[in-house]
Design a protein around this nucleic acid. Structure first.
Lengths: 119, 119
DNA sequence: AGAGTTGCTATACTAAAGGATACTAGTATA
DNA sequence: TATACTAGTATCCTTTAGTATAGCAACTCT
């Protein structure tokens, strides 16, 4: 249709296509990653702030997910040497760019829900 | 347009935003849904064709995933009264539109991989 | 008769994801 | 001394996702 040549080429090779999509999928799938990324889209947050934002998450899961997101370079963790210690989490540039993906997902999700209800 | 205003409003409400994204995410997450959708993007397929396309999938998983995708109105199942019986799976309009989401995911996945390797 | 095709299902299992609850160190405040 | 705050860990348990292997009915082909 009207996509860049580079992306057209990737699509031609369905294996590469699926691999790239899987990379993205792995980064955002699971129960808590979207709520965390969603919260951080509004600005940097501390551990307890995230825990308050995401009502039902346990510290174990929050800690685990934050570590994974950091490993995948989606978020950046900064420790401040204050008393008490202060740890801030924020999206990296790459992490922030996920909102394009999320926007595509919102659009599809809304449209699909309408289609399903109207049929 | 009515649609774009609606979508803008949803984005402002982070809870709705996350719910809509989750709808989409639930439809495509898991180990086998992308390979199945990816295969069907190239046209309708029969059960055994899908099984051959997706080398490592067991019939149990293929059957399970196809049922889920059908329930979510992503694919349509058609049984032909031939001998031997012939069952064809194809993407619905809604299912086909998922490629916009997948395209956004490919773009991000490729770019992210480059960023991570170059740092 | 025996083997092969199609489109599955049944049963039993392992692995991964997630939850519940309690706990830690270091510091500050009451 | 007891309590509370920060940012997490440790341990154990349950639930969900996925795997392995076998089998079935209804046919066709050799």
């Amino acid at each position: 249709m009207h996509d860049s040549i580079e992306i057209e080429e990737i699509k031609k090779c369905s294996v590469q296509y699926i691999l790239a999509v899987n990379d993205t999928l792995n980064v955002i799938s699971g129960k808590w990653k979207l709520p965390i990324i969603g919260s951080l889209l509004f600005g940097k947050k501390r551990f307890k702030e995230l825990q308050r934002d995401i009502a039902a998450i346990t510290p174990r899961m929050l800690s685990k997910e934050l570590k994974e997101l950091e490993l995948n370079s989606i978020i950046k963790r900064t420790v401040y040497d204050t008393i008490p210690v202060r740890v801030e989490y924020e999206l990296t540039d790459s992490g922030f760019k996920l909102n394009h993906v999320l926007e595509a997902m919102v659009e599809w999700g809304v449209e699909h829900r309408e289609n399903v209800l109207n049929n």
